[in-house]
Amino acid sequence: MLLKKLLGKHILLMIGGVALLTAVWIVAYFCVGNDLLLPSFGETVKDFFLLWIDGAFWSALGVTLLRVLSAFVLSFALAVLTAVLSYLYPSFRAFFAPILAVLRSMPVLAVLLIILVWTNDGVAPVIVAFLSLYPILYTQTLTAICGVDNKLLQMSKAYRVPMSVQITKLYIPTVAPALIKACGLALGFGVKLTVSAEVLARSKHSLGVLMQDARGFDLPQLFALVIVACVLGFVIEYAFVCVAERMQRGKK
């Protein structure tokens, strides 16, 4: 009952936030008074729903999502592997620290231009998203593993609990909620980053290139596509956060 109340309150607050943004848009539209600079809210919403019956949009969305997923799977797999190695071997963590620092400080969209020289417009956004997501997932995974209760680990050692049992019964349940939350944030960020990279790289059959095409002569559609990217990122992120919170509640 309490949970339902909290959820209801949460949803109402979110609707309030969307309503505020819409109000700001409508006021700004009347202040600017130029459809070439800022399209009307109604026109954009109409274009947003028109996209749903456009086959080209769905294929572009599919291609973009495939890129996001590829970058995510690649970075997640490598992040888990290197985080486990860093946890087990402090010397590996020390060796890896400068590489990670470089990846973290890298201006990935600028690096996209170099990657485009070496690869093509289809692969470059995946690499850009990977370079951004990997350090985030690595740090989150390592933090989660290091957060496993030392007292429980000591107890496991005293009782000679096999490592396989420790992994399935102690490490995974402890790490999973934080990791799922991190995956949601990474996927949401991945959508924004991949679309940005596609716009810059003019990747064929992608949301990014649809945005490029709409720029200049179909501003409502450009806004509608930006909204699609925002909604997509938000939905993915929110779904994962919900799953992680449900797991944490279950754990308690």
Partner: peptide
């Protein structure tokens, strides 16, 4: 000393396992 039972100052039970699962955890 290979097979010991250890009771610590705090219970040190796995919070996401039931009582019987906590006992299964040690084999």
């Amino acid at each position: 000393t290979e097979n010991v039972g250890f009771v610590f100052q705090e219970p040190r039970l796995l919070p996401f396992l039931t009582v019987e699962e906590n006992l299964t955890y040690v084999g």
